[in-house]
Design a protein around this nucleic acid. Sequence first.
RNA 1: GUGGUUGUAGCUCAGUUGGUUAGAGCGCCUGAUUGUGGUUCAGGAGGUCGUCGGUUCGAGACCGAUCUUCCACCCCA
Length: 454
Amino acid sequence: MATSKPSLPKGTRDFGPEQSAKRSYIIETIKNNFIKYGFSQIETPAMEQLSVLTGKYGDEGDQLLFKIMNSGDYLKKSDSTDFEKGSAHLLPKISEKGLKYDLTVPFARFVVMNQNDITFPFKRFQIQPVWRADRPQKGRYREFYQCDADIVGTDSLVNEAELTQLIHDVYNDLGYKGFVLKINHREILMELARYAGLAGKEMPFCVIIDKLDKVGQEKVIEELLAIGANQEKLADVINSFSTEGENTLKVEMIEKVIGSNRGTKELTEYFDFLQSYGTENLQIELDFSLARGLSYYTGIIFEVKATDVQIGSITGGGRYDNLTGVFGLQGTSGVGISFGLDRIYDVLEEKGLFPPSLTQSSDVLITHFDEECMKHGLGLLKQLRAAGIRAEMFPESVKMKKQFNYADKKEIPYVLVIGSEEIKRGEYSLKNMKDGSQEMLSIERIIESITDQK
RNA sequence: GUGGUUGUAGCUCAGUUGGUUAGAGCGCCUGAUUGUGGUUCAGGAGGUCGUCGGUUCGAGACCGAUCUUCCACCCCA
């Protein structure tokens, strides 16, 4: 077989020991909080039936799905006429599976398939990779991890309040403060669209509105007029976006424009729950222009944006009233959030917020001069590990310099040296790699010494 | 998916209008130091110039395709 330069598929990455340790740190932080709030972990396959995935994320989303070709002779279900009719006709004949695009839709499938075993309300969390055939950029990968927590089987807005608190706990634990948590209600967007004379065009309205902070007011107004918005009414809508002040006041303001509705009622109730938490330090910004893309959201929606790093949204979520409906289970409402592990990593890295020395290394390295000393070392390894000390031995009797160099590179704080003299005395040289000091100690004293320093 | 951008040693990068044998710093290896790393000194290894094709007497440089990187759309974690 001809040799070739190895390479990775576009938008995928390897993670070395240091990166993996940092990723684990974020995952553990999020996971601990999920557990603290009463969520239970589940996992679903990397691949789903294409029929489960397609049509759930809009036309754009379908385009971004990674399809898996059928196994074996993948052309056997198709003929040349399928090929001539184009890719849309050919696709279902050669591909029946796809890589999952997010964790919410597979979760909805899970709920429907396991509805008889699940006790509602069901609180689950899930930390797994997802795949999107997007053009990669900074903070945008084709394979990335989502950390989701959802509650299904309850309409209570207490859940929204809980998730809000959870978001703050996670970022507090990670030591990141440069974020803003924005919220809105899908129903308010719908009402605003109708008010502006865009009944039936609510979704295009959302897409345009969502770009407000990016392209500016004038461009948004221009685009909305182009799809048929009423100029005067639109001015009221745009003005409502720039309302300043307390979130509860903003709700009152918007009610003056579009009247009381499900959105304003729910937001009022939600803010009331937050108040009852007794914590006043939550930074939440009600932003009527926040739209969020995923088409299945119907109630309150969340988005966490990094303000001091150019990376966009690092956490998103919201309520979906009827997600399981498409799989035949009606009337099951859910609300959830999704933390973007890879983007959070990029933020913590850029802001220098990772704790020092996350990489796991041994506490002590055993070095030796020859085969006999090495064998002797195996017994010591066992004793060290039994005492809870992370210990490893250099596996070859090479020059001391090389063995010490290894300890230095791996930042192992202690080196234990075994020579014939040491074996005779039953004491070993223990060198502290940080200050360079060294003394002869029995294995018991060595264990004490290292344990004290840990 | 549309438009642009990037690729030279393990890493960060030089490389003149196309012209002999493609360089530097850091890292790596060896020795000074045959029982000791991180400092110092001396020496050494390492490159199909992303890949394939084309133009040319001659290509790292020019042209085309392709892969990859980053960016703007689109969309999103």
